[in-house]
């Protein structure tokens, strides 16, 4: 099993951008479930900040902004990383427009709401898909990664939204939000759990299972249920914590088990230095 250093900048970018879009998605949902203007305004701002900071980390990793733009512009080749940057870019645009439209009544904010949800799904899914599409790393070729990234990110976005709501008083906040977050927690647990057992994780399997499906999944579900019983900032914060731990762990472990494919047998320590 060839071990690879974790690309932490990419891990952080993927979690931040996707969960930022997640927050935006919940704002979108609130258009239909009755959210409060004030909470939504702050939520949108936070979402935009998270997406921008995440994008900044991606730029740091790649080295210069022009290449990120080139990557996004390179859509015609359908390169997964291009899709990823494109989704972030569009969601950012949607967020900014939503910022202005959000105050007005009328259908516009609903349209932007829907766009936000779509954006969040796009960002969440493509941050995972850019791993799954890597042909040379068969162990990534599982839908558990894109969906795990998507549900985990929406889950974190949801908890952030719930936290904001709790701060502004929970009266009038539809219970449905909480059930959506709880649903996301269940989905995250299932998907990341399945991946855990499928992927040949070697000696760190238990660490992964503990952090992602257990803490990130079940822990988040617990936080959601507690929040449902008494909507308080504490439980939302707990949820954020569990979602962050689960999200980071899942995205990091994706790198650690990178290459059980063709070259995996070449345990680099033995063969690395002698080919003669």
């Amino acid at each position: 099993m060839s071990k690879t250093p974790v690309e932490w900048l990419l891990v952080l970018f993927k979690l931040l951008a996707a969960s930022g879009a997640g927050v935006l998605a919940f704002v979108g949902i609130s258009e239909f479930l009755g959210g409060r203007k004030r909470t939504n305004l702050i939520a949108i701002i936070i979402a935009l900040v998270m997406i921008v900071v995440g994008g900044g980390l991606a730029v740091l990793k790649v080295g210069n902004p022009s290449s990120v733009m080139a990557a996004a512009a390179n859509i015609r080749t359908g390169a997964p990383v291009s899709l990823e940057f494109l989704a972030c870019g569009l969601t950012l645009v949607v967020g900014v427009i939503y910022l202005f439209v959000q105050r007005q009544e009328g259908p516009a904010s609903k349209v932007l709401g829907c766009a936000s949800v779509l954006g969040a799904v796009a960002v969440g899914y493509t941050t995972g898909y850019s791993h799954q599409a890597m042909v040379g790393t068969p162990v990534w070729n599982t839908p558990a990664i894109p969906f795990g990234f998507l549900f985990g990110a929406l889950l974190l976005g949801g908890f952030i939204y719930l936290a904001l709501s709790a701060r502004d008083g929970t009266d009038g906040l539809s219970k449905v939000f909480v059930w959506i977050v709880a649903g996301l927690a269940v989905l995250t647990t299932l998907v990341t759990g399945v991946h855990g057992f499928a992927a040949p994780l070697d000696d760190r399997l238990f660490l992964y299972l503990a952090l992602t499906p257990l803490v990130g999944g079940v822990g988040s579900l617990l936080a959601a249920v507690l929040y449902a019983r008494s909507a308080s900032l504490v439980w939302a914060a707990l949820g954020i914590l569990t979602a962050v731990v689960g999200g980071l762990a899942f995205r990091a472990f994706v790198w650690v088990i990178v290459k059980p494919g063709l070259l995996s047998f070449l345990d680099t320590s033995a063969y690395g230095q002698f080919f003669s």
């Binding site: 060839s2 690879t4 250093p5 990793k61 790649v62 080295g63 210069n64 290449s67 080139a70 990557a71 390169a79 990383v81 850019s130 791993h131 599409a133 890597m134 042909v135 040379g136 790393t137 068969p138 990534w140 790198w255 990178v258 290459k259 494919g261 063709l262 070259l263 070449l266 680099t268 063969y271 690395g272 230095q273 080919f275």
Partner: peptide, 25 residues
């Protein structure tokens, strides 16, 4: 001239090591 060294291609290539720094990538 275009390549930015982002190394995204390395996990994509089944015949390359993920960091592009060990034989027989």
């Amino acid at each position: 001239d275009i390549c930015q060294g982002c190394k995204t291609c390395l996990p994509a290539c089944p015949y390359s090591s993920p960091e592009g720094n060990v034989k027989p990538s």
